[in-house]
Design a protein around this nucleic acid. Structure first.
Lengths: 136, 136
DNA sequence: CTAGAACCTCACGTCAACGTGAGGATCAAG
DNA sequence: CTTGATCCTCACGTTGACGTGAGGTTCTAG
């Protein structure tokens, strides 16, 4: 399969695929004329790479994890990398969840204002990081 | 309060605080000599800014949301911004959760391999290791 | 009074994951 | 055979949130 088709099916740009090769994340055969030739499996591989990128992993971190997919051989270092990244992602989810909850709180206040602008509490400490009190 | 103290208490760098001012996220008085003077509330404000940065908001997005904290006046656009960002964060949490689950799956496979490498790989040459050998 | 800590303003450097031409070769269809 | 789509390799540009000096002023403790 050629690069354009892989890009289309994996939902990434052609440039991204060339970049992934440059980073050692995908390997492509070459036709006699120099065009990249990908196996079918490349599509799933690229999708997985995208998943990890979306989770905040760097090219380097992905490159260190990818060999496990092929060999399924888990060295202690490999296990360590996997669990480390899992921990990082958990932390990231926590941070996002905190931000989400704070925004939700603000959205609730906004809704209260839209329902009755005149009666809104004048000095709620909106920046404080306490959790909202139990609503009855 | 001066910039160094605010930085320390909010857990950010002095440079970051100057950058936030440049971006219009915090306002600081100036002493006659030109040193920035922050109110106590600046610490919480900066922590909130950091929370939003950590959730992937840009300076611009934060700048558009911050006025709501002071006025508590919710225009339709403000409500829109808040809910839009909440949606974005939810999407981000979803993506992270998918990556997390996928890593967990790999970690499970790695653990299986470490428990019985022979069933995963033909080469059973186990050199001296401090990990506990398989007990019959 | 003096030294060092803390502050100031430029202004260039960084890093990652690509985007965006430039300039040219190759492929697929009519 | 030609033409338009697709591909190639450089190689510089982009974006965001700061880092990092350079060169100079101000504050504060002894």
């Amino acid at each position: 399969m050629r690069i354009g088709k892989v890009a289309e099916r994996a939902g990434v740009s052609v440039r991204a695929l060339r970049y992934y090769e440059e980073q050692g994340l995908v390997i492509a055969d070459r036709s006699p004329s120099g065009h990249r030739q990908y196996p079918e499996s490349a599509v799933e591989r690229v999708k997985f790479i995208q998943l990890l990128y979306a989770a905040g992993l760097t090219s380097k971190a992905i490159r260190q994890i990818l060999p496990f997919l092929e060999t399924l051989v888990a060295t202690p270092q490999m296990t360590r990398r996997l669990t480390d990244e899992r921990a990082r992602i958990r932390g990231q989810i926590d941070a996002l969840t905190r931000a989400h909850d704070r925004l939700e709180e603000l959205i609730r206040l906004a809704a209260e204002y839209e329902n009755s602008p005149a009666t809104c509490s004048p000095s709620a400490d909106v920046t404080a990081s306490h959790t909202s009190p139990p609503r009855h």
